[in-house]
Design a protein around this nucleic acid. Structure first.
Lengths: 144, 144
DNA sequence: GTTGTCGCAACTGTAGTTGTTACGACAGGC
DNA sequence: GCCTGTCGTAACAACTACAGTTGCGACAAC
């Protein structure tokens, strides 16, 4: 289906900034992060812009500018990141409204919406269980 | 994100066939189902073709042909339908492989894959809880 | 004023989904 | 044998989403 990697790249950028700051640096630039994720600096800036609007990171402009975490990695869950970078619902209802004169067409949308609400809730619970600190520790524990 | 309605339309078609058969008809045609879902018969045939490959419906050709359920609505869960019509994973990893020389780039993919496996498992559990009989009953209970 | 970086708009390329047309394959009725 | 209705499937266009790229203005430190 979607094959959308926004959440992956956003988590990558946050873990990178967190690790970089622990090594004593103040800020990280999109030009530093981009090669690690093998993408373009503008892609990083777009995603970090979403995260800034959600209050997860801060940016400074001018010479010596860059990005820094607004909250600890322990306090940021993947659900926070997901909500910041993924706008729409997981599953869509009918693109064009079904026939309201048909019994099925009339009742199917609320029925499916209830199911989809439950599915999204389960997905959110699962994402909320993992913090970015967990992700970073898992990354650092990877075999060389 | 994806805004993909394949699961919705597939469930709609199955509920429609199930209800139609309970009204005493042998088979339903894609031309009958399509107007109820407000889409094209070929879209219905494509989705029902996926469901036939998964063993959920059967099709007959020739005059008087059409589609019929291969299993009871009670025994078909939305997970069965999801697996039949949705090919790929929910979240993708990096489109281009991250820098293996960077600590984060090296360890991020297995770390995120573990998270995504858990999320998909939660989604599957949730979809498996709902049968198409549940959906049809919910549809029939909708206010007029 | 020079420099380095973000902020953002514009455009392209690629892929997935949907909608549509067309036509062959098949099976039943005449 | 021919006609008819339906599936099966290919081909194509339209639309959307995301990724990638370029360009340039805004801003702040020096």
């Amino acid at each position: 289906m979607s094959a959308n990697s926004r959440l992956t790249i956003a988590a990558h950028a946050l873990a990178w900034i967190g690790l970089y700051q622990r090594q004593g640096h103040e800020v990280a630039t999109s030009e530093q992060i981009a090669p690690s994720a093998n993408t373009n600096p503008v892609v990083i800036r777009r995603l970090l812009g979403d995260l800034r609007r959600a209050g997860l990171v801060e940016s400074r402009r001018g010479v010596g500018a860059g990005w820094s975490l607004a909250r600890d990695l322990e306090s940021i869950t993947l659900l926070d990141v997901y909500e910041a970078v993924e706008p729409g619902p997981l599953f869509a209802l009918h693109r064009a409204a079904p026939d309201p004169g048909c019994v099925v067409g009339h009742g199917i949308q609320p029925a499916m919406q209830r199911v989809y609400d439950g599915v999204e809730e389960a997905l959110r619970r699962e994402l909320a269980r993992v913090t970015l600190e967990d992700v970073l520790q898992d990354v650092l524990a990877a075999p060389r």
